[in-house]
Design a protein around this nucleic acid. Structure first.
Length: 111
DNA sequence: GAGGTGACTGCGA
DNA sequence: CTCGCAGCCACCT
């Protein structure tokens, strides 16, 4: 049995996010059961760049669809470019039509 | 073993 | 509308 760390659990969920979709930290936290600990998800993403395979962290934003972690990509424009590359429109550092492209693991993975 | 940190969230003023 | 505070918990030193 391999006990996956909280980080690994977050990474797996994030990697399951379909192309052109985004989710929020709270949604992932809720799916993992650590509902009140959305910070842990963000903290896990902090080490995401050390994980392999790489985690599409650009698809993970805060509940407002704001690119809170854009600075962790090295350059603030990188995260936006990656999202636009997948067909996601970003304006003023936040995802447009956020609720339309929102992907909730607690719902999508439940089906 | 204990303390500090953090890519968040919700509610009150 | 904007701003601030408290809660939450795994990982690192």
């Amino acid at each position: 049995m391999e006990k996956l760390s909280f980080y690994d659990q977050v990474y797996q969920v994030v990697r399951l996010i379909p192309n052109g979709r985004v989710t929020s930290y709270g949604a992932i936290a809720s799916y993992l059961g650590t509902k009140g600990s959305s910070r842990m998800v963000g903290y896990a993403m902090n080490a995401a760049h050390t994980a392999y395979p790489p985690v599409p962290a650009q698809r993970v934003v805060n509940r407002n669809g704001l690119l809170t972690g854009k600075f962790h990509f090295g350059t603030e424009d990188l995260m936006q470019q990656l999202l636009e590359n997948e067909g996601i429109k970003v304006e003023n550092d936040k995802v447009t039509d956020f609720k339309k492209i929102f992907w909730d693991p607690a719902i999508e993975l439940e089906l």
